[in-house]
């Protein structure tokens, strides 16, 4: 795709004059997977058009690490809706630079759908992108957060935390036995106390997967 083509797609988004038109032009722009599209896709997150925002988030996730610095830079001072969508994009990308933001969102966002996706994102972090010395402290921080979040009042947030704890345990086995055993302890506790059947089943599945990993 030439630079001119991508400029045309960007202009089409800027000119969109109806919700449907916006959705369609954003989808086209997102599918181009072109770095030049990042700023426009981020802008769309603030338009209060859920369909277009979903398409923009998908586009940003596909662009991956390239979008991370721009997302982090633009996220402050944005309206709440835009920040929620940006959090989802960062959760999907999994770059460790977003760690602090995801921790904050998973613990404290008032919208359960944002806590849910931030919690999911914490299991999705690509630790290898951190300098060696920072890996263990960062993993410990993610683990502490997920243990807190696994006690969220909303079932779906606890469900997401369980998924991420399993992912984290998988990436920590066998190098970090202490952290892994903390996760196993938390899972065993959840098997005793969790009242929602679905969350309990998810924990049970995680435990099964982790057992088969060890043998």
């Amino acid at each position: 795709m030439t630079n001119q083509d991508i400029q045309l797609l960007i202009q089409a988004v800027e000119k969109a004059d109806s919700a449907n038109d916006l959705l369609e032009t954003v989808e086209n722009l997102a599918e181009a997977r072109h770095p030049e599209a990042i700023a426009t896709l981020i802008q769309v997150l603030g338009y209060n058009n859920p369909g277009a925002a979903v398409a923009a988030v998908e586009g940003l996730i596909h662009l991956g690490d390239l979008a991370v610095p721009i997302l982090l830079e633009q996220i402050d001072g944005y309206n709440y809706g835009a920040r929620a969508w940006a959090t989802r994009a960062l959760a999907g990308i999994g770059h460790p630079k977003a760690l602090d933001l995801l921790i904050e969102a998973a613990k404290r966002d008032f919208a359960l759908s944002v806590r849910r996706s931030a919690a999911k994102g914490l299991g999705n972090i690509r630790w290898a992108q951190l300098p060696d010395a920072e890996v263990t402290p960062a993993q410990t921080q993610a683990l502490d957060t997920l243990i807190t979040v696994s006690q969220d009042p909303e079932w779906v947030v606890r469900y997401a935390a369980s998924v991420s704890l399993e992912q984290l345990a998988t990436s920590l086995t066998p190098t970090q036995p202490t952290l892994v055993s903390q996760i196993l302890q938390r899972f065993n506790k959840m098997m005793e106390t969790e009242e929602e059947l679905s969350v309990k089943a998810r924990v049970q599945w995680a435990l099964q997967n982790l057992c088969s990993l060890e043998t």
Binding site: K120, A160, A201, W205
Partner: peptide
């Protein structure tokens, strides 16, 4: 042991988080 159906449904749920 969780049934295959349970695991199938949970996989779908995981993908929607």
């Amino acid at each position: 042991e969780l049934s295959q159906e349970s695991v199938r449904i949970m996989k779908l749920m995981d993908g929607l988080l």
